[in-house]
Protein backbone atom coordinates (compact mmCIF):
# COMPACT_ATOMS: atom_id res chain seq x y z
CA UNK A 1 0.00 0.00 0.00
CA UNK A 2 1.11 3.55 -0.67
CA UNK A 3 -0.24 6.41 1.41
CA UNK A 4 0.51 10.00 0.61
CA UNK A 5 -0.54 12.19 3.51
CA UNK A 6 -0.91 15.99 3.39
CA UNK A 7 1.80 16.43 0.78
CA UNK A 8 2.76 20.07 0.21
CA UNK A 9 5.50 20.91 -2.26
CA UNK A 10 6.46 24.37 -3.51
CA UNK A 11 8.36 25.27 -6.64
CA UNK A 12 8.85 28.72 -8.14
CA UNK A 13 5.44 29.63 -9.56
CA UNK A 14 3.70 26.39 -8.65
CA UNK A 15 2.74 24.34 -5.60
CA UNK A 16 1.19 20.99 -4.82
CA UNK A 17 -1.21 21.44 -1.94
CA UNK A 18 -2.80 19.03 0.47
CA UNK A 19 -2.30 15.89 -1.60
CA UNK A 20 -3.75 12.79 0.04
CA UNK A 21 -3.78 9.47 -1.81
CA UNK A 22 -4.39 5.90 -0.70
CA UNK A 23 -3.21 3.35 -3.22
CA UNK A 24 -3.84 -0.32 -2.48
CA UNK A 25 -1.41 -3.08 -3.44
CA UNK A 26 -2.29 -4.23 -6.95
CA UNK A 27 -4.14 -1.05 -7.87
CA UNK A 28 -3.76 0.52 -11.27
CA UNK A 29 -4.05 4.09 -10.08
CA UNK A 30 -4.28 6.97 -12.53
CA UNK A 31 -3.38 10.59 -11.85
CA UNK A 32 -5.05 12.72 -14.46
CA UNK A 33 -5.53 16.38 -15.12
CA UNK A 34 -4.74 19.08 -17.63
CA UNK A 35 -1.17 20.07 -18.52
CA UNK A 36 0.48 21.86 -15.60
CA UNK A 37 -1.84 20.36 -12.98
CA UNK A 38 1.09 18.87 -11.02
CA UNK A 39 0.59 15.19 -11.87
CA UNK A 40 4.22 14.44 -12.71
CA UNK A 41 5.39 16.37 -9.63
CA UNK A 42 3.57 13.85 -7.45
CA UNK A 43 5.58 11.06 -9.10
CA UNK A 44 8.81 13.03 -8.60
CA UNK A 45 7.93 13.54 -4.93
CA UNK A 46 7.19 9.82 -4.55
CA UNK A 47 10.58 9.03 -6.10
CA UNK A 48 12.26 11.46 -3.69
CA UNK A 49 13.56 13.73 -6.44
CA UNK A 50 11.90 16.86 -5.08
CA UNK A 51 12.02 18.09 -1.49
CA UNK A 52 8.59 18.23 0.15
CA UNK A 53 7.55 21.17 2.32
CA UNK A 54 5.47 18.91 4.52
CA UNK A 55 3.59 15.63 4.51
CA UNK A 56 4.48 11.96 4.56
CA UNK A 57 4.78 9.12 2.10
CA UNK A 58 4.27 5.60 3.41
CA UNK A 59 5.17 2.56 1.35
CA UNK A 60 3.87 -0.69 2.83
CA UNK A 61 3.80 0.95 6.29
CA UNK A 62 7.41 2.15 5.91
CA UNK A 63 7.84 5.92 6.08
CA UNK A 64 9.95 6.72 3.01
CA UNK A 65 9.57 10.51 3.24
CA UNK A 66 13.26 10.98 4.12
CA UNK A 67 14.60 7.92 2.33
CA UNK A 68 17.00 8.61 -0.56
CA UNK A 69 15.59 7.79 -4.03
CA UNK A 70 17.83 4.76 -4.54
CA UNK A 71 16.45 3.07 -1.43
CA UNK A 72 12.74 3.64 -2.09
CA UNK A 73 12.15 0.63 -4.30
CA UNK A 74 9.98 2.41 -6.85
CA UNK A 75 10.37 2.04 -10.61
CA UNK A 76 9.74 4.81 -13.11
CA UNK A 77 9.12 4.90 -16.86
CA UNK A 78 9.07 8.37 -18.34
CA UNK A 79 7.21 9.58 -21.40
CA UNK A 80 10.52 9.98 -23.26
CA UNK A 81 11.69 6.57 -21.87
CA UNK A 82 14.97 8.01 -20.50
CA UNK A 83 17.05 5.09 -21.75
CA UNK A 84 20.78 5.46 -21.16
CA UNK A 85 22.03 6.30 -24.67
CA UNK A 86 25.58 5.01 -24.12
CA UNK A 87 24.46 1.54 -23.00
CA UNK A 88 22.96 -1.15 -25.20
CA UNK A 89 19.56 -2.65 -24.46
CA UNK A 90 20.93 -5.51 -22.34
CA UNK A 91 23.03 -3.14 -20.23
CA UNK A 92 20.10 -0.76 -19.86
CA UNK A 93 17.88 -3.54 -18.55
CA UNK A 94 20.52 -4.91 -16.18
CA UNK A 95 21.73 -1.48 -15.03
CA UNK A 96 20.22 -1.63 -11.54
CA UNK A 97 20.98 -5.28 -10.74
CA UNK A 98 24.33 -4.61 -9.02
CA UNK A 99 22.64 -2.37 -6.44
CA UNK A 100 20.23 -5.07 -5.28
CA UNK A 101 20.97 -8.26 -3.48
CA UNK A 102 19.34 -10.54 -6.01
CA UNK A 103 19.91 -14.21 -6.77
CA UNK A 104 21.71 -14.36 -10.16
CA UNK A 105 19.62 -17.36 -11.25
CA UNK A 106 16.41 -15.48 -10.48
CA UNK A 107 17.73 -12.43 -12.30
CA UNK A 108 18.52 -14.53 -15.38
CA UNK A 109 15.07 -16.13 -15.21
CA UNK A 110 13.35 -12.77 -14.79
CA UNK A 111 15.45 -11.27 -17.59
CA UNK A 112 14.46 -14.05 -20.01
CA UNK A 113 10.82 -13.79 -18.97
CA UNK A 114 10.64 -10.02 -19.46
CA UNK A 115 12.63 -9.99 -22.67
CA UNK A 116 10.26 -12.53 -24.22
CA UNK A 117 7.11 -11.13 -22.66
CA UNK A 118 7.97 -7.67 -23.99
CA UNK A 119 9.21 -8.94 -27.37
CA UNK A 120 12.66 -7.37 -27.20
CA UNK A 121 14.86 -10.48 -27.45
CA UNK A 122 16.26 -9.38 -30.81
CA UNK A 123 17.16 -5.90 -29.59
CA UNK A 124 19.57 -6.76 -26.79
CA UNK A 125 22.73 -5.58 -28.55
CA UNK A 126 21.25 -2.46 -30.05
CA UNK A 127 21.64 1.06 -28.70
CA UNK A 128 18.64 3.22 -27.75
CA UNK A 129 19.35 5.65 -30.60
CA UNK A 130 18.47 2.93 -33.11
CA UNK A 131 15.15 1.88 -31.52
CA UNK A 132 11.61 2.96 -32.39
CA UNK A 133 9.38 4.63 -29.79
CA UNK A 134 7.54 1.38 -29.02
CA UNK A 135 10.78 -0.56 -28.66
CA UNK A 136 12.18 2.08 -26.31
CA UNK A 137 9.00 1.90 -24.24
CA UNK A 138 9.36 -1.87 -23.88
CA UNK A 139 13.03 -1.63 -22.89
CA UNK A 140 12.22 1.04 -20.31
CA UNK A 141 9.50 -1.20 -18.88
CA UNK A 142 11.86 -4.19 -18.72
CA UNK A 143 14.52 -2.08 -16.99
CA UNK A 144 12.08 -0.99 -14.30
CA UNK A 145 10.32 -4.35 -13.89
CA UNK A 146 13.39 -6.58 -13.58
CA UNK A 147 13.99 -5.17 -10.09
CA UNK A 148 10.41 -6.06 -9.05
CA UNK A 149 9.70 -2.60 -7.62
CA UNK A 150 7.04 -2.12 -4.94
CA UNK A 151 5.21 0.06 -7.46
CA UNK A 152 5.75 1.07 -11.03
CA UNK A 153 5.33 4.78 -11.81
CA UNK A 154 4.43 5.66 -15.39
CA UNK A 155 4.75 9.28 -16.45
CA UNK A 156 2.48 9.77 -19.47
CA UNK A 157 3.56 6.48 -21.07
CA UNK A 158 1.10 6.73 -23.98
CA UNK A 159 1.18 10.36 -25.03
CA UNK A 160 4.21 10.13 -27.35
CA UNK A 161 2.92 7.09 -29.27
CA UNK A 162 1.03 6.87 -32.53
CA UNK A 163 -2.54 5.47 -32.30
CA UNK A 164 -1.69 1.90 -33.37
CA UNK A 165 1.30 1.64 -31.04
CA UNK A 166 -0.69 3.26 -28.26
CA UNK A 167 -3.27 0.45 -28.34
CA UNK A 168 -0.46 -2.11 -28.34
CA UNK A 169 1.24 -0.55 -25.31
CA UNK A 170 -2.09 -0.19 -23.49
CA UNK A 171 -2.66 -3.94 -23.90
CA UNK A 172 0.90 -4.56 -22.75
CA UNK A 173 0.44 -2.44 -19.62
CA UNK A 174 -2.77 -4.25 -18.80
CA UNK A 175 -1.05 -7.61 -19.23
CA UNK A 176 1.85 -6.55 -17.02
CA UNK A 177 -0.53 -5.31 -14.35
CA UNK A 178 -2.53 -8.53 -14.36
CA UNK A 179 0.27 -11.08 -14.76
CA UNK A 180 2.73 -9.51 -12.34
CA UNK A 181 0.08 -8.22 -9.90
CA UNK A 182 2.06 -4.98 -9.97
CA UNK A 183 0.90 -1.78 -8.31
CA UNK A 184 0.97 0.82 -11.06
CA UNK A 185 0.58 4.57 -10.76
CA UNK A 186 0.14 6.25 -14.11
CA UNK A 187 0.06 9.92 -15.02
CA UNK A 188 -2.14 10.70 -17.98
CA UNK A 189 -4.23 13.47 -19.42
CA UNK A 190 -6.58 11.16 -21.30
CA UNK A 191 -9.62 9.80 -19.51
CA UNK A 192 -10.17 7.20 -22.23
CA UNK A 193 -6.73 5.66 -21.49
CA UNK A 194 -7.53 5.69 -17.80
CA UNK A 195 -10.92 4.10 -18.37
CA UNK A 196 -9.26 1.23 -20.23
CA UNK A 197 -6.43 0.62 -17.79
CA UNK A 198 -7.06 1.90 -14.29
CA UNK A 199 -9.36 0.90 -11.45
CA UNK A 200 -8.83 4.09 -9.42
CA UNK A 201 -8.26 7.65 -10.40
CA UNK A 202 -7.47 11.06 -8.92
CA UNK A 203 -8.17 14.21 -10.91
CA UNK A 204 -5.86 17.17 -10.34
CA UNK A 205 -6.09 20.82 -11.18
CA UNK A 206 -3.75 23.63 -10.15
CA UNK A 207 -1.82 21.42 -7.73
CA UNK A 208 -4.86 20.10 -5.86
CA UNK A 209 -6.81 16.87 -6.08
CA UNK A 210 -10.34 17.76 -7.20
CA UNK A 211 -11.83 14.26 -6.99
CA UNK A 212 -10.67 10.70 -6.45
CA UNK A 213 -12.25 7.29 -6.28
CA UNK A 214 -12.97 4.31 -8.46
CA UNK A 215 -12.82 5.08 -12.16
CA UNK A 216 -16.49 4.19 -12.63
CA UNK A 217 -17.57 6.33 -9.70
CA UNK A 218 -15.66 9.40 -10.88
CA UNK A 219 -16.84 8.84 -14.44
CA UNK A 220 -20.48 8.52 -13.41
CA UNK A 221 -20.55 10.98 -10.53
CA UNK A 222 -18.25 13.95 -11.15
CA UNK A 223 -18.37 16.42 -8.28
CA UNK A 224 -17.73 19.67 -10.15
CA UNK A 225 -17.96 21.34 -13.53
CA UNK A 226 -14.21 20.88 -13.99
CA UNK A 227 -14.31 17.14 -13.29
CA UNK A 228 -17.45 16.70 -15.36
CA UNK A 229 -15.80 18.41 -18.29
CA UNK A 230 -12.64 16.37 -17.82
CA UNK A 231 -14.48 13.02 -17.89
CA UNK A 232 -16.27 13.95 -21.09
CA UNK A 233 -19.54 15.58 -20.03
CA UNK A 234 -19.62 18.15 -22.78
CA UNK A 235 -23.06 19.57 -21.92
CA UNK A 236 -22.65 21.61 -18.74
CA UNK A 237 -25.53 24.02 -18.28
CA UNK A 238 -26.23 26.67 -15.68
CA UNK A 239 -29.67 25.86 -14.22
CA UNK A 240 -32.14 26.78 -11.56
CA UNK A 241 -33.57 23.74 -9.77
CA UNK A 242 -37.09 23.50 -8.45
CA UNK A 243 -39.50 20.59 -7.95
CA UNK A 244 -36.97 18.12 -9.26
CA UNK A 245 -36.71 19.97 -12.53
CA UNK A 246 -33.82 21.98 -13.87
CA UNK A 247 -34.66 25.18 -15.68
CA UNK A 248 -32.08 26.14 -18.33
CA UNK A 249 -33.33 29.38 -19.80
CA UNK A 250 -36.84 28.28 -20.98
CA UNK A 251 -35.96 24.61 -21.15
CA UNK A 252 -37.28 22.44 -18.29
CA UNK A 253 -35.28 19.24 -17.76
CA UNK A 254 -36.60 16.42 -15.60
CA UNK A 255 -33.99 15.37 -13.03
CA UNK A 256 -33.46 12.03 -11.26
CA UNK A 257 -35.50 11.59 -8.08
CA UNK A 258 -34.02 13.38 -5.05
CA UNK A 259 -31.79 15.72 -7.07
CA UNK A 260 -29.93 18.29 -4.99
CA UNK A 261 -32.08 21.41 -5.09
CA UNK A 262 -29.08 23.61 -4.19
CA UNK A 263 -27.26 22.52 -7.37
CA UNK A 264 -26.34 25.18 -9.89
CA UNK A 265 -25.30 23.20 -12.95
CA UNK A 266 -26.56 20.25 -14.95
CA UNK A 267 -24.16 17.95 -16.80
CA UNK A 268 -25.14 15.52 -19.53
CA UNK A 269 -22.88 13.23 -21.56
CA UNK A 270 -23.08 13.68 -25.34
CA UNK A 271 -23.59 9.95 -25.84
CA UNK A 272 -26.68 10.06 -23.60
CA UNK A 273 -28.55 12.45 -25.91
CA UNK A 274 -30.25 10.16 -28.42
CA UNK A 275 -32.41 10.65 -31.49
CA UNK A 276 -35.94 9.42 -30.86
CA UNK A 277 -36.61 6.20 -32.70
CA UNK A 278 -39.46 3.74 -32.49
CA UNK A 279 -37.53 1.66 -29.94
CA UNK A 280 -36.96 4.61 -27.59
CA UNK A 281 -40.03 5.46 -25.67
CA UNK A 282 -38.91 5.64 -22.06
CA UNK A 283 -37.11 9.01 -21.97
CA UNK A 284 -38.29 11.40 -19.28
CA UNK A 285 -36.85 14.25 -21.35
CA UNK A 286 -37.89 14.56 -24.99
CA UNK A 287 -37.43 17.72 -27.04
CA UNK A 288 -37.47 18.99 -30.55
CA UNK A 289 -34.03 20.21 -31.62
CA UNK A 290 -32.42 21.80 -34.66
CA UNK A 291 -29.07 20.52 -35.89
CA UNK A 292 -26.57 23.39 -36.18
CA UNK A 293 -23.54 21.52 -37.42
CA UNK A 294 -22.00 18.06 -37.55
CA UNK A 295 -18.42 16.75 -37.61
CA UNK A 296 -17.34 13.37 -38.95
CA UNK A 297 -14.94 11.77 -36.45
CA UNK A 298 -14.30 8.50 -38.31
CA UNK A 299 -16.34 5.98 -36.32
CA UNK A 300 -18.95 8.45 -35.09
CA UNK A 301 -20.31 11.93 -35.61
CA UNK A 302 -20.23 14.90 -33.25
CA UNK A 303 -23.61 16.60 -33.53
CA UNK A 304 -24.37 20.11 -32.30
CA UNK A 305 -27.98 21.23 -31.91
CA UNK A 306 -30.10 23.84 -30.22
CA UNK A 307 -33.14 23.00 -28.13
CA UNK A 308 -35.24 26.02 -27.24
CA UNK A 309 -32.19 28.21 -27.71
CA UNK A 310 -29.92 26.02 -25.53
CA UNK A 311 -26.90 24.47 -27.23
CA UNK A 312 -26.30 20.72 -26.82
CA UNK A 313 -23.66 18.37 -28.13
CA UNK A 314 -24.34 14.72 -28.92
CA UNK A 315 -22.31 11.79 -30.24
CA UNK A 316 -24.18 9.61 -32.68
CA UNK A 317 -23.43 6.45 -34.57
CA UNK A 318 -22.05 6.97 -38.07
CA UNK A 319 -24.57 4.65 -39.72
CA UNK A 320 -27.53 6.39 -38.07
CA UNK A 321 -26.34 9.83 -39.19
CA UNK A 322 -25.80 8.69 -42.78
CA UNK A 323 -29.01 6.64 -43.02
CA UNK A 324 -31.22 9.42 -41.62
CA UNK A 325 -29.55 12.20 -43.56
CA UNK A 326 -28.69 14.18 -40.44
CA UNK A 327 -27.41 17.58 -41.57
CA UNK A 328 -27.37 21.17 -40.36
CA UNK A 329 -30.81 22.78 -40.33
CA UNK A 330 -32.68 19.51 -39.87
CA UNK A 331 -35.24 19.37 -37.06
CA UNK A 332 -35.73 16.16 -35.13
CA UNK A 333 -36.86 14.76 -31.82
CA UNK A 334 -34.20 13.87 -29.24
CA UNK A 335 -34.35 12.59 -25.70
CA UNK A 336 -32.39 11.50 -22.64
CA UNK A 337 -33.11 9.76 -19.37
CA UNK A 338 -33.52 11.78 -16.18
CA UNK A 339 -30.95 9.64 -14.35
CA UNK A 340 -28.32 10.56 -16.96
CA UNK A 341 -28.46 14.18 -15.80
CA UNK A 342 -25.93 15.07 -13.11
CA UNK A 343 -26.59 17.97 -10.78
CA UNK A 344 -23.44 19.84 -9.76
CA UNK A 345 -23.04 22.40 -7.02
CA UNK A 346 -19.89 24.08 -8.37
Amino acid sequence: MIHIQNLHLSLPGFALKDINLDIETGDFFALIGPTGAGKSLILEAMLGMLPMDSGRILLEDRDITSVVPEKRGLGIVYQDYALFPHLNVRKNILYGIKYHNLDPNQVAEQFDFLVHQLGIAKLLHRYPGTLSGGEKQRVALARALILRPSALLLDEPLSALDPVLKEEIKDLLRTIHQELSMTIIMVSHSFSDVFYLANKVAILKDGRIRQQGSVNDVFEHPNSRFTAGFVGMRNILRAGIRDNRGLVEKLAITLPPGADSSGKYLAIRPEDICPLTSGHNGFENTFSGTITHIAHQGFYFDIWMTIEGVKFQAVWDKNYVLEHDIRPGKELEVGFYADKVRVLGQ
Binding site: P69, A82, G96
Partner: peptide
Protein backbone atom coordinates in the same frame (compact mmCIF):
# COMPACT_ATOMS: atom_id res chain seq x y z
CA UNK B 1 22.10 15.67 -20.34
CA UNK B 2 18.46 15.22 -19.27
CA UNK B 3 18.13 15.09 -15.49
CA UNK B 4 15.63 12.31 -16.02
CA UNK B 5 18.48 9.93 -16.88
CA UNK B 6 19.96 10.61 -13.46
CA UNK B 7 16.55 10.23 -11.82
CA UNK B 8 16.02 6.86 -13.48
CA UNK B 9 19.50 5.73 -12.46
CA UNK B 10 18.77 6.60 -8.86
CA UNK B 11 15.36 4.92 -8.95
CA UNK B 12 17.21 1.79 -10.11
CA UNK B 13 19.35 1.87 -6.98
CA UNK B 14 22.46 3.87 -7.96
CA UNK B 15 23.67 6.51 -5.52
CA UNK B 16 24.33 10.08 -6.69
CA UNK B 17 28.03 9.28 -6.95
CA UNK B 18 27.47 6.04 -8.89
Amino acid sequence: IPERLENVSRSLGASMCA
